[in-house]
């Protein structure tokens, strides 16, 4: 009897296990450490740091090919983009980027790369296969944020001193629209269906919700946390769930990530993360959002469904950017 009961319990346990969702897929998370000149690699199943490798001088913007074959890093003080093998962490080659590359965005097809050159008021378009510069597009003063529409037809650059989002046609390399936003726009993010564009303004303290078809600003998201100076609520990184329902905004020195309703644009919650949070990246399954916390030398992991911070992981010094490899 006893053995039979034990077997039943065991069966029940197995059934229970069978009903929970598949365990999280293990992804590799790459974090650029601006100060220590390294890239930290984290396993998203164990959340252990599995490697740290040299990333060039002052690595900031970081992204990965859609097929996971190449990792791209803006090595700002080297005036180049360094390309790494995401499996072996070997440096493969460099790409011409124009001076002081800070942030970039890859075409959804994996080529080309659109790079903001802060010092030259330019966006440089670089072919990642031929390693040639295809175009240099004059934009406003201090270009930084780069976003691309899901269909790849429009790339948006934000200029930090001009305070505009510049819409660039990716076929003609011409600016087709300029939208004035608030002070020091840092980041541009389209929704997955391309119907909305979110642009954060670090010093203005707002995120503009823009209709990309018309250029109209539909709404300005503002932030307020009791006990925190409004000047410290500085929006930088923005990520939107693929269903468009949730917008996550990194709020810099307020050490918080705002959770925003993607339809009403109400701020639902503020999640406490590490210090001076700037950039964000989802895991490809969107179960987790990873935040880079520059002044506490760590990344925070947010459970997206629960909208809770579940852990923090020490990385190198002054973590800046983050990207998660597809499987």
């Amino acid at each position: 009897m006893t053995g039979r009961a034990a077997a039943l319990v065991l069966t029940a346990t197995l059934l229970a296990l069978g009903t929970v969702p598949d365990p999280a897929a293990a992804y590799r998370v790459f974090v650029s450490n601006e100060r220590s000149n390294t890239i930290t690699v984290i396993d998203s199943e164990t959340w252990e740091v599995i490697a740290e490798f040299p990333g060039g001088n002052r690595p900031r913007g970081i992204t990965i090919a859609p097929d996971g074959s190449e990792l791209y890093v803006c090595a700002s003080d080297d005036d180049t983009v360094r390309v790494f093998d995401p499996q072996t962490f070997e440096e493969l080659h460099t790409l011409p980027s124009g001076p002081d590359p800070e942030l970039f965005v890859l075409h959804p097809s994996g080529n080309p790369l659109y790079i903001a050159n802060e010092d030259d008021n330019l966006v440089t378009v670089t072919d990642v296969r031929t390693r040639q510069i295809l175009a240099e597009i004059p934009v406003g003063v201090e270009p930084e944020g780069m976003g691309i529409s899901p269909d790849g037809r429009v790339v948006v650059n934000t200029s930090e001193t001009t305070n505009m989002a510049h819409f660039i046609d990716t076929e003609t390399f011409q600016i087709i629209r300029n939208v004035l936003v608030d002070q020091r726009p840092r980041f541009a993010q389209f929704t997955a269906d391309g119907s909305l564009l979110y642009v954060s303004a670090e010093i203005g303290g707002t995120v503009s919700v823009i209709d990309p078809e018309t250029g109209d600003i539909l709404h300005r998201i503002t932030f307020e946390v009791p006990g925190i100076q409004p000047e410290l609520l500085q929006p930088v990184g923005v990520r939107v769930t693929s269903d468009g329902r949730r917008v996550f905004v990194a709020l810099g020195p307020s050490n918080r990530v705002a959770v925003v309703d993607g339809e009403s644009w109400e701020v639902l919650d503020y999640l406490l993360v590490g210090q001076r949070v700037w950039q964000l990246a989802f895991t490809p399954d969107e179960r987790y959002l990873i935040t880079t916390n520059g002044n506490s030398n760590d990344v925070s992991v947010i459970d997206v469904a629960a909208e809770q911070v579940i852990r923090s992981i020490p990385v190198g010094q002054q973590p800046w950017g983050v990207v998660v490899a597809p499987q």
């Binding site: 001009t162 505009m164 510049h166 600016i175 300029n178 004035l180």
Partner: peptide
């Protein structure tokens, strides 16, 4: 110069 760059778009 900075103002003129911005002004150029407007």
């Amino acid at each position: 110069q900075d103002n003129a760059t911005t002004g150029g778009f407007l």
